[in-house]
């Protein structure tokens, strides 16, 4: 082959690059919803108990219920008789992009609100507050983060835990081997098969993973929380009208006391698919949140 097709190829790439920034600007999610009568909800597939599939492949979970409350509020706000709901599964790797490029209108799952992400998307009022902790085997003797020095530790790629863990390892020279697994399922499998002695993640998700285990009683969630993080629903940036409707829907769920009922349903009672009870009592942070709903990030 000669050089020329290569040049043609480079030219193609260059054209693609140049045309890429010309994305359509579409302000007003509410307007779009009103015009089309359709709203697209982004959800997770296995973030137990926030957003996941039950054994009939229906999306359920704590965050999903908040999202549906927000949808009702949107329907009422726009005085729509009918609002068609489209569900779109997202992953931690593509959720931000899908909000940005307009595929998904709102995503309530287990997405942490932080300042870095606020450069690309906006976050609603916080729906949950977690602490990042460790899941270990009960007989492992590991009680807290300092016990991890020199050990293999797993966390899920693309999460704030991954960042914290790598930074801790760097700052305190702990000599840990950090394994970044593709998703929570593979992280847990890494822990379960003995590849890692601990799995660092948001405490609520760790309780969720425990519920899936073959012998839930073998596992424990331990350690001093390394960070507090606020889960919010993601919406498009610079769309204040839409965010306001979602925010007030969440605030009113919290004010009416429905939030506590939803909490108890998912954290203090048996949940699908296996009927396990996570037994995670309402934390002080959560009580404070329900009293004073806000959209502040912790970092």
């Amino acid at each position: 082959m000669t050089n020329s097709p290569r040049l043609a190829m480079l030219a193609m790439v260059a054209t693609t690059l140049l045309s890429a920034p010309a994305f359509a600007q579409d302000a007003g999610t509410l307007k779009k919803i009103k015009e089309t009568g359709v709203i697209t909800l982004g959800h997770r597939e296995s973030s137990i108990p926030f957003s996941y599939y039950d054994d009939k492949q229906q999306v359920i979970g704590y965050s999903q219920e908040f999202m549906l409350k927000a949808v009702e509020a949107i329907k009422a706000d726009q005085k729509l008789d009918k609002l068609e709901i489209k569900l779109m599964p997202v992953t931690s790797a593509n959720r931000i992009t899908l909000i940005q490029n307009g595929t998904v209108d709102i995503e309530c799952g287990s997405t942490t609100n932080n300042t870095e992400r606020q450069k690309q998307v906006a976050f609603s009022n916080t729906i949950f507050v977690i602490g990042t902790k460790l899941m270990v085997k009960k007989d492992s003797g590991i009680k807290d983060f300092p016990d991890l020095a020199g050990k293999n530790v797993v966390t899920t790629a693309g999460t704030t835990s991954e960042r914290l863990l790598r930074k801790m390892n760097e700052d305190k020279k702990m000599g840990m081997n950090v394994i970044s697994a593709k998703d929570h399922g593979e992280s847990f499998l890494t822990l379960e098969t003995g590849r890692a002695v601990a799995f660092m993640m948001d405490d609520a998700l760790l309780y969720g993973e425990t519920a899936k285990a073959k012998r839930p009683a073998d596992w424990d969630v331990v350690g001093t929380a390394q960070s507090k993080e606020a889960y919010g629903c993601m919406v498009r940036k610079d769309d204040a009208a839409f965010k306001k409707v979602v925010d007030s829907a969440i605030a009113s769920v919290m004010a009416s006391g429905d939030a506590v009922k939803i909490y108890n349903k998912w954290f203090m009672a048996p949940i699908p698919p296996k009927g396990l009870n996570l037994n995670m009592p309402l934390s002080d942070e959560m009580k404070a949140l329900y009293k004073a709903p806000n959209d502040k990030a912790f970092e």
Binding site: S19, F23, D26
Partner: peptide, 22 residues
Amino acid sequence: FFLMIPHMLESIFGFPRGSDMR
């Protein structure tokens, strides 16, 4: 094809914004 091209096409040809492109 999943994340970028549909949206380039939309902005160039003004296609309606589809929801489930998967």
